[in-house]
Each structure stands twice: as structure tokens, then as C-alpha cells.
Simulated assay, not measured.
Amino acid sequence: MASVHDFGRRKFPRGEVLLSSGRRNWSGMAAEVRNHPAGEIPPPVPQQMEITLALSGSPTGRVERRGNGEWQDTPARPGTLWLCPIGVVEESIRITEDLSSILHIFIGHEVFKEVSRTVSRAVSPESIAYRAGIDDEFVRQVGYRISAELEEETCVGGLLVDSLSSAMAAHLVATYSGALLQDRENPRIDQVRMRRVVDYINDNLDADISLADLSEIACLSHHHFARAFRSAVGVPPHRFISTLRLKRAQDLLAHTQANLADIAFACRFSSQSTFTRAFRRHMGLSPGEYRRKAGR
């Protein structure tokens, strides 16, 4: 998604980048958090769906923008959302006061193509409305989860983003384009295919596992697979894999002398500190404390 980050640099040349997915192994979606100074923003034509969420924003600042002939003047308080679909020509964008911690999420064409294949009809991101100040808790919570992943990378971040990008694209089309997405059938995954998926996960816990890999093994589209897996197992794929990796970490801590950095890498954490925080959240004690209790 390098081109998406190039777009962010072109659109926001004065915006300070605080967090970015540029070095993450994400597909379908990219994101960045910026501080924006007051003033005019040069408005290029987007080549991807842009969702903006004010994480901190400003108690009195506003964003004034005009696109598709529509004028919008929106308070930039925390939780405020903006949508800018692919192809919208924004004639002007003006920020009245400095804004802090603004999340920008970019979703590419390929995600909407996948949604089209899932529902067997053409789904156009260009049909999504140009909106500001929407009250959409689903979009807001996905934004907060993406922001948390940017701030602290998890061992299943890429898989999580795969799932969220498809869910977000389907939600935007269903809610803001008038094209109601109704699956023609309730997707299910039989025991044989589920066993193949689980075996693959267990055999590749020390490697990157993508939603595309799992969907192909299950012979389902990305969107159908994520829903069918959650229906069968009770948790989404990324959470299932995260739990297995943490269980593997417990086994390595209890039965080997491997150092914490090696265990973190083997369980696909980006650093020892990230692994330590995740392990403490999961177990209620640090990896070192767990190892001492296990007698290693």
C-alpha cells in the first residue's frame, strides 16, 4: 500500500505523521495518524476510499470542505468522522485551528472488488456518499482498533487488518451507497475444511498467516470465510491465532531455555516489549514471572 502513503504525503504536506502503517505487512488497508496545522489543504483526487476519524481533534476547531458541489462545515471534536470516496473532487479543504491526532484510513479498489465477488454483483466505491460528521459507531470502533494496532503492533495485525478492511468496505457500501448487501446464503464451513484451516494455522504459527491464505484453504471468499470461521469457532481468525501463539509462548517459556527475544520472534511479535505487554494482558503476569513459576 505504498501508493496510499504517497497519497497521504501529497494531500497533507504540512501534517505531522505520528503513526503509520507504511512499514507494516498490511494488505487492502493502510492508515496513519497525523497532527494538522490550521490552514488550507491541497485537495488531490483520491484513488482509494478515505475514512477520517478525529482521535483528539479540537474542542473548537472545524473542518470546512467542498466536494461534488456540496459544502460541509464540521466541528472536529473527538470521535468526528468524515468519508471521502474514490474519485471525489474536493474543491477546497480548510482547517480553522490546529488539530491533533487525526486518523486517516485508506481502503483500496481491490477490497471492494473482493466484496463484489462475495455478493456476485458489482460494488462501486465511487457510489459511496461524500459525508461529514456521521454518527456511525461501527466505523468509529474500527477506527479506534486500527489506531490501537498502529500504536502497539500485535502478532496478528496483518490478519486483523485484512478482516477489518473487508468488513469496513461492505459496511460503507451497504450504509452509504444505497446498495444493500445481502448475502444470498449463510456461509458455513464444514469440519473437513475447518480441520485443514486449523492444521495450517498450527503448522505456520511462526510465519505470517494472511486471511487470503486461510480463505483459499477453506475455498471461501475472504468475507465469507471470516464470518463462517467466527460462526464455527466463536472468535474471529486473528483472535484464534493470537491465542494459539500465546499458548505456544507459554510452552516455550515453561519447557525451553530460549530467551524472551527469540520467543517473541517465534510467536510473530514485532519486539520483546510488545510480546511482554501482550503476554501480561493474557496471563496476568510477565513472561519472566511465568517462567519462574514454571520452574525454568
Score class of each variant (00 low, 15 high):
V161R: 03
R277Y: 07
R196P: 00
Q182D: 11
K293A: 14
Y144L: 15
P287C: 05
A179W: 00
E126W: 00
W82Y: 15
R94A: 13
F240N: 01
N35G: 11
R188Q: 13
H171N: 07
S20A: 07
I201S: 00
F229W: 06
Q182R: 13
R117T: 12
R117W: 10
S271R: 02
I263Y: 01
P46H: 04
N202A: 14
A258M: 11
P37N: 04
W82V: 10
F279M: 07
D135I: 12
I263L: 13
K11N: 08
A2W: 00
H109M: 12
D213L: 09
D251H: 14
T118L: 06
Q182L: 15
A294L: 08
R281Y: 01
A261G: 10
K113Q: 12
R195M: 09
C219A: 12
E289D: 15
L260M: 12
P78T: 08
G143I: 00
E216N: 15
P43V: 10
S273Q: 15
S271I: 10
S147I: 00
D208I: 15
S270F: 01
I102E: 04
S3L: 12
Y176S: 05
V115D: 02
P46M: 07
F229R: 05
L150R: 04
V115S: 02
R94M: 13
V197F: 02
D208T: 15
K113R: 12
R117V: 10
V173M: 02
T52L: 10
E97P: 04
S270R: 13
E40W: 07
A30D: 12
Q250K: 09
E153W: 07
G61A: 11
P125R: 09
L81C: 00
L83C: 10
L211M: 11
V198C: 05
P78C: 01
Q191S: 14
G108I: 07
A132T: 14
A132F: 05
E90P: 05
R121M: 13
D162T: 06
G61N: 01
R23P: 00
P13C: 07
H255I: 04
V63G: 07
L83T: 10
F225Y: 07
I134K: 09
L253F: 03
R195T: 08
S163H: 10
C219R: 14
R193N: 13
L180Y: 12
I134L: 03
